[in-house]
């Protein structure tokens, strides 16, 4: 469904230098596949996500969704960021409805859709509350509802649980799997956490920094539905260990490092 073919993105930094954030990234993502992107800071994960979102255009190469080249944001894509970034003046319900308002797609069924989503994430009864009355985890659930309200077929998540505490984070990971099983979408999920990457994904894309490129793509064969118990299986440990070696191995003995 999403197809990246030798995508390269170069940024001009302020002092005139050119920084290659992504180099020759090729990736095919199938419909309703759950892909996680993992890698150290500066490996271009977020840039890749924004290219798929149509917020940034590739400098070279081709990014397409369903065969159509991505040249601008597409309305059937939902985005969740690291910070919930809810509107402080609007109620939870209005925050969920916000993308529909911005797209002028609000109609008589919108409120029902939003309420159903809030129920799905366990926030039924909170629709009239103001965002600051909610905890960080609850705010991020609202942000997930906001990303799903226009029923997109692609969900892009940029470290969505990165700002949450460890316990809430684990809870939200399972919660996301449940939501995904009830409303299947093609998900591209950026994370720093190897555990999170493995437990969520069909395939984990491991990236290496400077310039950002795909190091290896790892199939995760863990059966679904997954749970905390999945993390106790040998397959899980094997995959995690492999990813860890990929990331930290290059960090210490990579050829680029010695030169720098």
């Amino acid at each position: 469904m999403i197809s990246l073919n030798r995508v390269t993105r170069v940024f001009n930094s302020r002092d005139g230098d050119q920084v290659t954030a992504l180099q020759d990234v090729s990736l095919e993502i199938g419909r309703n596949e759950f892909i996680t992107l993992v890698g150290p800071s500066g490996c271009g994960k977020s840039t890749l996500l924004r290219i798929v979102a149509g917020l940034i255009l590739p400098t070279a190469g081709r990014a397409s969704i369903g065969g159509a080249e991505i040249t601008e944001p597409r309305s059937e894509t939902g985005i969740v960021f690291q910070a919930p970034t809810l509107l402080p003046w609007a109620s939870v319900l209005d925050n969920v409805l916000f993308p529909l308002r911005m797209m002028h797609r609000i109609d008589s069924t919108s409120t029902d859709k939003a309420m159903a989503l809030l129920k799905l994430v366990g926030l039924a009864g909170f629709e009239g509350k103001s965002p600051r009355e909610l905890s960080g985890g609850m705010q991020q659930r609202v942000a997930i509802c906001r990303a799903l309200v226009h029923d997109p077929d692609i969900l892009l998540m940029d470290e969505p649980f990165g700002a949450l505490d460890a316990l809430t984070r684990e809870e939200m990971t399972m919660e996301l799997l449940r939501i995904w099983s009830e409303r299947p979408k093609t998900v591209l999920f950026v994370t720093h956490s190897i555990t999170e990457a493995v437990v969520l994904a069909d395939r984990v894309v491991v990236m290496s920094p400077r310039p950002g490129r795909i190091q290896e793509i790892i199939e995760i064969g863990l059966p679904r539905p997954r749970s905390f118990e999945s993390e106790a299986t040998p397959e899980f440990h094997e995959a995690s260990q492999h990813i860890r070696q990929l990331i930290f191995g290059t960090r210490h003995v990579g050829p680029g490092r010695a030169a720098a």
């Binding site: 924004r50 979102a53 149509g54 917020l55 601008e72 944001p73 309305s75 894509t77 985005i79 960021f81 690291q82 910070a83 970034t85 509107l87 916000f98 993308p99 308002r101 911005m102 797209m103």
Partner: peptide
């Protein structure tokens, strides 16, 4: 992020300003 969200919704500059 909110500006990106607004762009992702293909909202106009005016509604980005007002909303």
């Amino acid at each position: 992020e909110l500006i990106e969200l607004s762009r992702a919704c293909r909202a106009s500059k005016l509604s980005e300003l007002l909303r």
